[in-house]
Amino acid sequence: MTALNKRTYTLEELAAHVQGEWVGDNEHVLSGVGTLSAASVQQISFLTNPKYKPQLKDTQAGAVIVHDKMRDDVSGNALVVENPHAAFARIAQLFDTTPPVASGIADTAVVAASANVGSGVSLGEHVIIEDNVVLGDNVSIGANTVVRKGTHIGESSTIHPNVTIYHEVKIGKRVCIHSQTVIGAAGFGYANDKGTWLPIPQTGSVQIGDDSQIGASSSIDRGAMEDTIIGKNVIIDNQVQVGHNCIIGDHSCICGTTGIAGSCHIGKYVILGGGCGVNGHISICDNVQVTGYTMIVQDITEPGVYSSGQPAMKNREWRKNAVRLKQIDSLYDRVKALEKAN
């Protein structure tokens, strides 16, 4: 890909950026992205889902990103690529107007004398950097974030405002952590002595690999004795709980409000849909996709798609099914009796 650093681009420049082929007016200027139904002539859109194909005939988009098999369906300018969704993501990054989380080092930031701060680091208002913290070059940390002692944050990582990172955590390069997230809090470890819960000190830590993204209001607990490990290029949505000593393999995706109990081992390229629950000490092999609101109570050893959530249906149908479910035991007994009679 070419390196671009401006706010408007010709179709030909964008094609070069994503190694695609332009069709139509190569000099057409684009300054943003939009949906097929709402984009203007200055915006570029994309099509991957055939459901939205009918919108092509009425779109006002200045160009549309499509796969080669759909190039003839676009009457105007097109950008033809192998993976339209990925190309759209790379182009959208060029037009991103999200402000930086910090610029320079604020006067109210508190940095311990023993901290090692790289070049180009930005710290927002009231950031606290404790003893022996290491911040790589070009790290940006938003206002009111606390980084506790001994933590390492790799170069070009972005920590949004109001994040808490506990002690001795290791965060890789180009990691993004969104607001209200807590990394390295004590794992849920207790022993019961005659009805009284005794906390077990959690002496492990958390490791987060390069290029991972952690959503807002998520929690990743530190390990009890060994580390909780998040691999490279793992994406974790908002309000996700990762228990102590979990291992999540490279390139996996954990969607919102999923809860993963302690000591789970999740492989590479795993996708857990929103609202999933994973029992403790579960192993999931590589290349597994789990649909939303599924409860995983045993190991998954074969790649594939797994489900257990109840899809929505009309209330009247659901009520009938609920009644029939209650009748299963008696129906089973009747069938067994008939089998014996025959």
Results as ranks from 00 to 15, higher is better:
Gly309Thr: 12
Ile248Gln: 08
Ser218Tyr: 03
Ala61His: 11
Lys173Ile: 04
Asp286Ser: 05
Thr258Ser: 14
Glu130Trp: 01
Thr98Ala: 07
Val41Thr: 14
Lys51Leu: 06
Lys232Cys: 10
Val64His: 10
Pro50Arg: 14
Gly262Met: 13
Glu226Trp: 04
Asp73Arg: 12
Ile91Thr: 09
Met1Tyr: 01
Pro50Glu: 15
Gly20Gln: 11
Gly256Ser: 15
Ala92Trp: 05
Ala113Gly: 12
Ile129Pro: 00
Gln207Asn: 13
Cys246Ile: 07
Arg7Asn: 14
Phe88Pro: 03
Gly275Ala: 13
Asp221Arg: 08
Tyr52Arg: 09
His126Ile: 02
Arg334Trp: 00
Gln55Ser: 12
Ile177His: 07
Ile91Pro: 06
Asp73Ala: 13
Ser212Lys: 08
Asp107Cys: 00
Tyr9Ile: 01
Asp72Gln: 15
Leu30Asp: 11
Asn162Ser: 09
Ile284Val: 11
Ser217Lys: 09
Val305Ile: 14
Ala63Glu: 11
Ser212Ala: 13
His152Thr: 04
Ala38Trp: 00
Thr10Lys: 03
Ala143Cys: 01
His244Ser: 04
Leu11Lys: 04
Leu198Trp: 05
Asp193Arg: 08
Val182Trp: 07
Ser252Leu: 05
Ile284Leu: 05
Arg324Asn: 14
Gly184Phe: 03
Val182Asp: 12
Ser103Asp: 12
Val18Ser: 11
Lys336Ala: 00
Leu11Asp: 08
Met225Gly: 05
Asp72Glu: 15
Gln298Thr: 10
Lys268Ser: 15
Gly273Tyr: 04
Ala86Asp: 12
Gly118Trp: 05
Leu331Ser: 14
Asp137Ser: 02
Gly120Phe: 03
Asp25Leu: 02
Pro311Val: 06
Gly136Trp: 00
His17Thr: 02
Lys149Trp: 01
His265Lys: 15
Thr228Leu: 09
Glu339Leu: 00
Lys170His: 11
Thr97Met: 08
Ala3Asp: 14
Ser308Gly: 15
Thr35Leu: 09
Ala185Val: 02
Gln207Cys: 11
Lys69Ala: 14
Asp299Gln: 04
Val146Tyr: 00
Gly124His: 10
Asn83Phe: 01
Ser330Gln: 15
Asn5Cys: 08
Val117Ala: 04
Thr158His: 01
His152Ser: 04
Thr196Met: 09
Thr291His: 06
Val33Ser: 09
Asp193Gln: 10
Leu30Trp: 03
Thr48Arg: 11
Ile260Pro: 08
Phe95His: 04
Gln202Pro: 03
Ala87Ser: 13
Cys176Arg: 14
Arg174Gly: 06
Asp193Pro: 02
His152Asn: 04
Ala87Gln: 10
Ser283Phe: 01
Lys340Asn: 05
Met225Thr: 13
Val206Ala: 07
Val163Asn: 06
Ala112Asp: 15
Ser205Val: 06
Ala191Gln: 09
Gly204Asn: 11
Cys176Met: 14
Lys320Ser: 12
Val147Arg: 03
Glu130Val: 00
Arg174Ala: 06
Gly120Thr: 09
Ile91His: 09
Gln327Gly: 08
